[in-house]
Every structure is written in structure tokens, then in C-alpha cells.
Design a protein around this nucleic acid. Structure first.
Length: 289
DNA sequence: GACATTTGACCTAG
DNA sequence: CTAGGTCAAATGTC
């Protein structure tokens, strides 16, 4: 149960690696204001990628409760009803503690991507349910990571169309990706390039602290990704499933970080380590215990 | 055939 | 008991 020790053991190298990744992203950010950002960005991309992958591996290995190991027991082994029942109960428990945040996505008229799946966020999702919600005009769609089976990735999302504005979607993400996936094909990347202006607002449902940065690139004027650190109980409890997770958006200019269940100390470490200014705004006031 | 979506049934928390 | 969330069989698509 208690794997706090395990997390702490892996925290220093992990956080150092995360800090490195963040620093690289900052470099990337500053390079964007150069006359020819493309070249300098290209050289940074592999570094960032490898740093992120290292971090994820560290997070997984230092976190026995991580979905890729414990929670990720393949369903192929869980064919017995009893096992499935137990798994279901555990999942119900986890639902409460999963890292959770919401994005509001506004789709401009004529935008590609379809009505029900307006946001390609770099991950592949599989729809597993749809439900009429009381008081809502539109049904809520439930998606989970395609790699849930193969990699035990626990990430899910819920897409709810706004009552008032049919082009506005509330997307609630639950859990963080433990899978190592990035957009694979050029088609997807092209689709993303072609995607008309997309406005993304992010808000924490249960997290007081938010860390956000916006790209300064001219190419993506309206895309803002926020990092939401969940407040208690996630911060205070040694919850297992996600210690740290980062993902690279296919758009080379956007990177989103997700600290999942890192502790206050961890966050302080990062804040000390990094010069957060300009593009970073961080409200740490709510961390006071 | 493999994978994704649809949809009614089922389960759980409140 | 109700609403929300998930499962899994049926069906569709490539």
C-alpha cells in the first residue's frame, strides 16, 4: 500500500530530469522569438523528447503503484468474473483520487475534426460510452486511452458539449498517461496544422494551484495550455498511480506538463530549480499547509 | 481480421 | 432510488 518511500527514492533523479526537460522547453520557447526558430527548435526537440521519456520511465520504475505495473494488469488476465469485479472496485476507488482537470474547447465554425471529437490532443482515444446527463442538452461521451489494454494507461476523458454554445466543449481529463505515445503519422500532424483557430481554456476542478504558460509563437495565437496541480488530497496522500507525467503535443510549440500527484516539496524543488518568469505564471499560494 | 463505435445493461456512490 | 460511469455484445469500418 504505502509506496511513498518508493516515490521518494526516485524523486531526485526524476525531478532533475523533469527540470531538465522544462529548461529545454524554456529554451525552445526563447528560440521561438529568433528570426529562424525552425532550425534551433529542431535541434532541441530530440533532447526534450529523450528527457521526457527518461522521466516517464523513472516515474514508472520508482512508482510500483503506477498503472504500467500494478494498475496496468492486462485485462486479458482478468477474464474471471471475480477478478473483474475486484478490478472494477479498485477502479472506482481510484476514480476519486485520479488527477483531474478540465479544458474548455471552442471550435470555430467549419473546423475540421468532427463534432464529437473536436480536439486531437496528441493521444489516441477510444470511445467506450455515452450517457445522457441530467440537465444537459447533449450527451456526455466517455473516452479512454487506446493503450489501456496494451500499456495499462489509465487516462480517460469526458467530452461534454456546452448547452449554450454547440461549438463549446468541456473536456475533463482523468488520470495521466502512462503510455509512451506520440502522434505517429504525418496525416495527423497535418490535420493539426490545418485545424483552424482553436481556443483552449483550462480550469482546475479540484486544484487550486495552476501553472500556465502560453507559447509566444505567432503560429498558434490562441492556444494556451495550463498545468493544474491538484491540491489535497492528492498532494497530501502518497497516491500511487501517477507521480509525474509529461507529454509532448504534436505541435512542436506546445508542451504540457502534468505533475499529477507530486508533493509540495517536489513542486518547490522545481520552482527553485527553474526561473519561472515571463511565460510562466505560478500561483503557489495555495500550497501552504 | 483487427480495431473503433454504439448502446443497453449493470454497478457504485451519494 | 437516482445519476453518473463503465462494461461488453453487436455492429460498423478499414
Amino acid at each position: 500500500m504505502e509506496n511513498g518511500a518508493g516515490v521518494e527514492q526516485g524523486i531526485s533523479p526524476l525531478m532533475a530530469e523533469l527540470a531538465r526537460a522544462l529548461r529545454l522547453v524554456q529554451q525552445l520557447d526563447s528560440h521561438l522569438s529568433c528570426p529562424s526558430p525552425a532550425e534551433s527548435c529542431k535541434s532541441l526537440a530530440p533532447d526534450i523528447l529523450s528527457s521526457i521519456q527518461k522521466s516517464i520511465l523513472m516515474a514508472q520504475s520508482s512508482n510500483p503503484g503506477s498503472p504500467a505495473s500494478a494498475g496496468g494488469s492486462p485485462r486479458s488476465d482478468s477474464s474471471s468474473p471475480a477478478f473483474r469485479d475486484q478490478e472494477r472496485k479498485e477502479m472506482m476507488k481510484k476514480r476519486k483520487t485520479l488527477h483531474k482537470w478540465t479544458r474548455q474547447v471552442k471550435l470555430t465554425p467549419g473546423a475540421a475534426g468532427g463534432v464529437e471529437g473536436p480536439v486531437d490532443d496528441g493521444y489516441s482515444w477510444r470511445k467506450y460510452g455515452q450517457k445522457d446527463i441530467l440537465g444537459a442538452k447533449h450527451p456526455r461521451a466517455y473516452y479512454r486511452c487506446t493503450h489501456r489494454k496494451t500499456q495499462g494507461c489509465p487516462a480517460t476523458k469526458q467530452v461534454q458539449r456546452s448547452d449554450d454554445d454547440p461549438l463549446l466543449f468541456d473536456i475533463t481529463y482523468l488520470g495521466t498517461h502512462s503510455c509512451l505515445q506520440r502522434p505517429q503519422n504525418k496525416e495527423q500532424q497535418q490535420q493539426r496544422k490545418q485545424r483552424p483557430e482553436l481556443k483552449v481554456k483550462t480550469e482546475g476542478l479540484d486544484g487550486d494551484a495552476s501553472l500556465s504558460f502560453a507559447s509566444v509563437s505567432d503560429e498558434m495565437p490562441a492556444e494556451i495550455f495550463s498545468i493544474i496541480g491538484t491540491s489535497s488530497p492528492d498532494f497530501l496522500s502518497p497516491v500511487t498511480s501517477e507521480s509525474a507525467c509529461l507529454f509532448m503535443s504534436p505541435c512542436p510549440m506546445v508542451t504540457s506538463l502534468d505533475w499529477g500527484n507530486s508533493s509540495v516539496v517536489d513542486m518547490d524543488f522545481l520552482l527553485d530549480e527553474l526561473d519561472l518568469e515571463q511565460s510562466f505564471q505560478f500561483d503557489a499560494s495555495s500550497f501552504s499547509t
